[in-house]
Design a protein around this nucleic acid. Structure first.
Lengths: 353, 353
DNA sequence: ATGAAAGCGCTAACAA
DNA sequence: TTGTTAGCGCTTTCAT
């Protein structure tokens, strides 16, 4: 854990440049004006020594942190990966580095990992909560660190939030399924403790209710991993009556559904329709291509970052909850079955919003 | 950037527990033995105040860092995402947090982002280099920070490295393609400046050479993004003579190839065979399922972490370069064309290694 | 076993 | 404009 190597400090630079440490600091941070000649001497000393400032020490003294924290359920999930990638480039543009930790979807870990984040005294944190309990919020606000939540509405916690219009978009997709003649819809959620899952289910039920009755919705809590979800879906497909449409409410569920449908020998869209959340490239290279909800993940990340920067900058206004709009890529997997009046030849990737 | 909130410091804890700051430190770090009564007082003061130690300050004084850096080309790429997820959990198990930055595949950024990492004084860094130039190595070793490279052999830099047997596995896959009667192989690389791409091409050529001549290999440098790669592949497929096998050498290329083949109206494995690097779940839910090389990404990450921990612990032995074995999931996309003597009904996901 | 005091690298206040 | 000094929160001597 120790390195005996001794890096040059600001004092090394100062003495080589024959100025005070304060002057070095002022040159490097462009804070007070410094005579060009001294500045040049400092710069060349920095080059010569390969000096790299210690931002930990800087933060300690100045009480200004150039690090932000990000807490997500799983770094390896492509949805969160895309979120983090956008967040990182946004952070870099403003001179922040990003300390990333993952909770594994476990609220206990959420607290533990947030505490670990806070030991580095980030200027703020962006959190995708595990579920409504959102224990990270208490910890961070007790520490006076600004928090912005993303993707999931954490219960009724009064926190800044950026998420999407889950209910609305799920309703639109469901209307599309109903228009194609589907009447027994299986909604595949991860866990209903996650707010966006509940909102998506609500949208499905809204569409069915608005239609006036003959359709049924069944919600399956299928778990967090691919294996769990596939097993739950497969078990349900083996039971009677078989649904005539599957709507998977997250990216893992969509993949699991495709796999389970194929394993059950059900063909889309003839035997069953499929729609899923979180568009990904593979969904339009398969045959039939998969109808999917496109969440604007880059925009979510950008909006969360912008909000966090405002809070870090001292914004004390009431928490704001933003909902961004999703689009839907209608593709072959969710078309009407042949023989249904709404049937038509599949047109690839006709985006609707 | 500033927070006016004042967190409890070790002094706050000390005075509430009526002990010295040294005792608090000793209790929290279990360093020297402390009377049980004092320890209890410290613990309850910590609880009461919600004290969270400042590891930046701790590192400053103790010169021991509990943070490690990770530098990858792209956080959003699922391959690197899986790598980082494993790395993070390995790090956490040893009490380290992970500062993650991405270079975007640009060597200039590689240097810049590594410098940013070093401002936090990590105990060590794990780097997936952009290409052979590996500028990060110079910077980090000049700073005396241990570096472990992963995934890509950076030229002849004498650095610890964990990667896979690229040449060997590419050779095996190619032999399989040749056995299926394929004779015009298109190898789709990102850039040949990346060592693992060259090694994979070498393996392909080895197999072709060993076979004795009638087969051809053509290497396409298709770029880093999905869009670029798809466009390059599509352009090549439109030209004559059309390859009868495509071997995509990374995950993005595989996706791009599937898309380009479909767009060109080529059917697998009848018109053309496809094999790709980096197995992913979608590859076996599509039809036909895609033959893929499975890199042991978790093992790569674990091995890299283990090596870094050894270096951080003071291991001064010569750099070690480890090659892990890949497996191949043989699936329908790469079977022999109907009519060829090697043709047989597709069996799904028959793993060979 | 415990406490007092020094100092890690840096910046902010104050002096010149 | 520049330098001097103090001190951020912590750990580590060194004293007791």
């Amino acid at each position: 854990v120790a390195s005996d190597h001794k890096l040059p400090s600001i004092r090394t630079v100062a003495s080589l440049a024959r100025v005070s440490t304060a002057t070095v600091s002022n040159v490097l941070n462009a804070r007070r004006s410094v005579a060009p000649e001294l500045a040049a001497r400092v710069q060349s000393a920095v080059e010569e020594l390969g000096y790299i400032a210690d931002l930990g020490a800087s933060r300690l003294r100045s009480r200004k942190s150039a690090i932000a924290g990000a807490l997500v359920p799983d770094i390896g999930n492509p949805f969160f990966g895309a979120f983090l990638a956008t967040l990182e480039s946004a952070a870099r543009r403003e001179g922040f580095d990003l300390l990333i930790v993952s909770s594994g979807g476990d609220p206990g870990q959420e607290t533990a990992r947030l505490r670990a984040l806070l030991t580095w005294r980030p200027a703020g944190v962006i959190v995708i909560p595990c579920d409504d309990s959102f224990p990270a919020y208490e910890v961070a606000s007790a520490a006076g660190v600004p928090v912005v939540a993303a993707d999931r509405m954490p219960g009724d916690t009064p926190v800044d939030l950026v998420s999407v219009d889950n209910c609305e978009v799920a309703r639109r997709v469901t209307e599309h399924l109903l228009a194609g003649g589907r009447r027994r819809i299986l909604a595949v959620a991860s866990h209903l403790a996650i707010a966006n899952m509940r909102e998506r289910c609500d949208g499905i039920r809204d569409a069915v209710a608005a239609m006036g009755g003959s359709a049924l919705v069944e919600v399956l809590e299928a778990g967090l991993t691919f294996g769990e979800m596939r097993a739950h879906i497969a078990a349900r497909l083996a039971a009677q009556p078989c649904p005539d449409a599957v709507f998977a409410l997250n990216n893992v569920g969509t993949l699991a559904a495709v796999d389970a449908l194929a394993a059950a020998g059900l063909s889309m869209p003839r035997d069953i329709a499929l729609a899923g959340f979180d568009d990904d490239i593979w969904m339009h290279v398969v045959s039939p291509p998969i109808t999917a909800v496109c969440q604007p993940v880059e925009e979510i990340a950008m909006a969360a970052w912008t909000r966090l920067m405002a809070r870090i900058g001292g914004d004390e206004s009431p928490p704001r909850q933003v909902r961004l709009a999703c689009t839907v890529a209608l593709r072959g997997s969710s078309g009407a079955a042949p023989g249904h009046p709404a049937f038509r030849q599949p047109a690839d990737s006709l985006a609707v919003c």
